[in-house]
């Protein structure tokens, strides 16, 4: 009996993944048929492997917040703040010494990474405290803090982009190790770590339980406040990591970079099978969803669609997938 329900649950969960894989395959075949010469080149997939990780990491951060029924609208603010603070550190506080050796440079970049991740951790802690302790609705709390973080970006930069990151910082966003893009390696590391954390640790299980029924979780004796706080701390740190990759790839940081990523992160998270009401979501689903959407975007770009029309397609896709999910659940 028990085994049977286990099996059924497994198929149910996989159904979502199967649906995603089919969507991805359809997009892939469609784009290959429409633009075979441009789409199927190695260069195209290589450039996707540089661009998608930052979005993928933000989407995983969004999923973490959604697992407990929340949302993190401040991820882009955190990402930009992390990149800009690192930029301020590199250009104003601790500029490169002209005769610095490679070790000194590496240490300087490592300090910048720690600084940026620390900013994300602090920002995430602020979100978590406001949501778990002060009991502000996640949507409003992160709306407000997102404004504050973006506001600090404006104060620090005054508007224009910060440029002049060290070469090793650029390596995080542009480099290759054994022919594989560094951002891709980072994304895989994050994805595997978060997947293990969600499925194999008490913390992950707690998050799912809280998201499924917050009231029952309290009566069951779970320390929901603390778990929610941790999840937003983690989400903030991941957002900062995305900020590092973004500023590394573009060698610049600006207060309004990546604003369209917010919608896309929500979209990818939902498309990947995350339930915005909480309790459901997998890293694998989110990862497939981000790749599906990246293939879609790059295909449309090759067909010379304007970026605005791609925005339209993202939005339409979000609505379509939600409708499909609703109709599928209704059939059960």
């Amino acid at each position: 009996m028990n085994k049977l329900t286990d099996l059924r649950r497994f198929i149910n969960r996989d159904n979502n993944i199967v649906q995603l894989l089919i969507i991805t395959a359809v997009i892939f075949l469609l784009m290959s048929a429409l633009e075979p010469h441009k789409f199927l080149r190695y260069y195209n997939f290589e450039s996707i492997s540089f661009i998608f990780p930052e979005l993928g990491i933000v989407a995983i951060a969004m999923m973490l917040a959604m697992l407990t029924g929340g949302i993190d609208l401040s991820v882009i603010g955190i990402a930009n703040l992390a990149g800009i603070l690192a930029g301020v550190y590199f250009t104003r506080l601790y500029p490169a010494a002209p005769d610095a050796g490679m070790t000194a440079e590496l240490l300087r970049v490592a300090a910048g990474v720690i600084l940026a991740l620390g900013v994300g951790l602090i920002a995430g802690t602020l979100n978590g405290l406001l949501i778990a302790k002060v009991k502000i609705t996640p949507i409003l709390a992160t709306l407000g803090t997102g404004q504050i973080f973006t506001g600090f970006c404006m104060v620090l930069t005054g508007g224009p982009a910060i440029v002049g990151f060290p070469a090793w910082w650029g390596f995080i966003g542009n480099g290759k190790i054994l022919g594989i893009a560094v951002p891709l390696i980072l994304f895989l590391a994050v994805a595997v770590a978060i997947a293990i954390m969600l499925t194999r640790t008490p913390f992950g299980l707690n998050l799912f339980l809280i998201g499924t029924n917050p009231r029952a979780a309290i009566f069951a004796g779970l320390r929901t406040d603390r778990m929610v706080l941790y999840s937003y701390m983690l989400s903030g740190t991941l957002a900062a990591l995305a900020g590092i990759v973004l500023s590394g790839r573009t060698n610049a940081a600006k207060s309004d970079y990546g604003t369209s990523y917010l919608l896309q992160a929500v979209l990818i998270s939902v498309l990947g099978g995350t339930n915005p009401a909480g309790g459901k979501g997998t890293v694998l689903g989110v990862s497939i969803a981000v790749i599906a959407l990246m293939l879609l975007a790059s295909g449309f770009q090759m067909m010379r669609f304007s970026n605005h029309l791609i925005d339209f397609i993202w939005g339409g896709f979000l609505l379509l997938v939600m409708v499909i999910n609703v109709l599928r659940n209704r059939g059960k």
């Binding site: 919608l263 605005h308 029309l309 925005d311 339209f312 993202w314 939005g315 979000l318 609505l319």
Partner: peptide, 9 residues
């Protein structure tokens, strides 16, 4: 969120 993106796009 979706409809805003659709209309603006």
């Amino acid at each position: 969120l979706g409809s805003a993106s659709v209309v603006r796009g």
